[in-house]
């Protein structure tokens, strides 16, 4: 017991409490039944304990998602802290599942838990990785699609952290636009 208390004291606390969610597409069930809260964590050490024990994103089957959101925010557009927001979207080719996906997702997680976005960390809601046969996607969700300064700063930092070439353009889409159009037709509100 003493050791546990000691370990608690010595762990490195994160700025935010984060929750990991898992989604598995079972078509016979309503969407919300397919979404499960896995666990929440508040320290660097507990993040790694979790990350080390769960399946890599690249090993999940098609139709599955991992989401990491600040505790209390549900990983859906409808949540009050998401609905006016949007996402920086990274679309991957099929080949990149094996070459890049896990590293890009880990980098995304490190950006979030490390609070990499300077004065705009409070605009971050979470991040999602979608495993899909036609191509996987990673997105960072922010709370206010109208906050140009926050959104563009986050986009620039995120793109740099992912090590994307300056020739690659990534786009930010408001959830309100994504919700009313099919993905391929959603226009980018911002690009970096």
């Amino acid at each position: 017991k003493e050791m546990t208390a000691m370990e608690k004291v010595m762990k490195n606390p994160l700025q935010s409490r984060w929750a990991l969610w898992f989604f598995k597409n079972v078509k016979s069930q309503p969407w919300q039944c397919n979404l499960r809260l896995v666990t929440a964590f508040t320290t660097v050490e507990d993040f790694w304990a979790l990350h080390t024990h769960i399946q890599l994103a690249s090993k999940l089957s098609s139709g599955c998602d991992y989401s990491i959101f600040k505790d209390g925010i549900e990983p859906m557009w409808e949540d009050s802290r998401n609905k006016r927001g949007g996402r920086w979207l990274i679309t991957l080719s099929k080949q990149q599942r094996h070459s890049d996906l896990d590293a890009l997702w880990l980098e995304t997680l490190l950006c979030l838990i490390g609070e990499a976005f300077d004065e705009y960390n409070e605009d971050i809601c979470g991040a999602v990785v979608n495993i899909r046969a036609k191509g996987d996607k990673i997105a960072v969700w922010t709370r206010d699609a109208e906050n140009r300064d926050a959104v563009t700063h986050i986009g620039k930092v995120y793109k740099e952290r992912l090590g994307l070439s300056s020739k690659i353009v990534i786009g930010y889409q408001a959830h309100a636009d994504t919700a009313t159009k099919s993905n391929s037709l959603t226009k980018n509100k911002f690009v970096v």
């Binding site: 370990e7 490195n12 606390p13 994160l14 700025q15 660097v44 050490e45 993040f47 790694w48 304990a49 080390t52 024990h53 980098e107 490190l110 838990i113 490390g114 609070e115 990499a116 960390n121 952290r161």
Partner: peptide, 20 residues
């Protein structure tokens, strides 16, 4: 203060025995 951690600091914990 705000707890911001750079990637190298975070990665240094990745393979610590206490974490597995």
């Amino acid at each position: 203060g705000k707890k911001q951690y750079d990637r190298d600091f975070l990665l240094s914990f990745q393979y610590m025995p206490a974490c597995v």
